[in-house]
Amino acid sequence: MNELRQLSKDLLQNGTVKVIIGYAEGTTPGRTKPFIARTPEDTDKFVFNKHCVNNLAVYLTRKEYKGKGTVGIVAKGCDVKAIVQLVQENQINKDDIYIIGMNCNGAAADFGKDTLAVKCIHCTVRTPHLYHTLLGTIDEMPKQEDDHLKMIEKFDAMTSEEKWAFWEAEFEKCVKCYACRQTCPMCYCEKCIADKSMPRWIESSAHTRGNFAWNIIRAFHLSGRCIGCNECERACPAQIPLSLLNRKMGMVAKKEFDYTAGIALDNPTLVGNYNNADREDFIK
């Protein structure tokens, strides 16, 4: 933690970065919240622990930072995936970001719990794959069953009618607070299709029909782009298991196109690329 504070202080002091997006203590000790350090003194508030679950890359595409000097960011591997995907999609310039990479021993599912967050169970980037400075150590992580994958397998085995009934019951709970969209680093559209009213593509009403339209379209928009930080599901007050949709779509992208979002900085994006060898047999 001292290393993190010292490095951040130096970066702000010597003008390498304008601001640093990191974590500070939350409501009670041990809890954390996103915090933006603007002065060297601010960096004394920085903390890093297993409750730093947020994906801070969501702030990088904000108007107040984009193109206005270098932004420092405290980033775990999963956050770096978001940064890489944003660079791939030309949303941020890699030279405008200073990544303080954090070796990560997994984030807790909730405060006061020892179980790992779903995204950490199948994590492949405990040491970030891109950084300017790397901090922290990698410790032994408790092995945890990937129950989430079993849920997806169970879901795959359902009939179309069963799948429909499952999502109907889940989406009925949606209140259209858009916490899923707002916490998603990949949902950066200046004007979301859900907010367009001339014409209105997606009904703003939170009835089942409007909720289906919203959640399914969002899942499609994230296909091959979702980096699996699972912030949408964590943020959802209605506890809709959005990770089932997003991880499944990611698995399809991997299987059909051998593409994983947020891994290779210089590669074109999945939907921004065409390959002669791509499958076409689904076009009928």
Binding site: K33, P34, F35, I36, R38, V58, Y59, V175, K176, C177, Y178, A179, R181, Q182, T183, A235, P237
Partner: peptide, 15 residues
């Protein structure tokens, strides 16, 4: 800076 980290969702209002 009061809302500098707020992501602008409606969770607070809807809950």
């Amino acid at each position: 800076n009061i809302g500098s980290t707020c992501v602008g969702c409606g969770q607070c209002a809807f809950a």
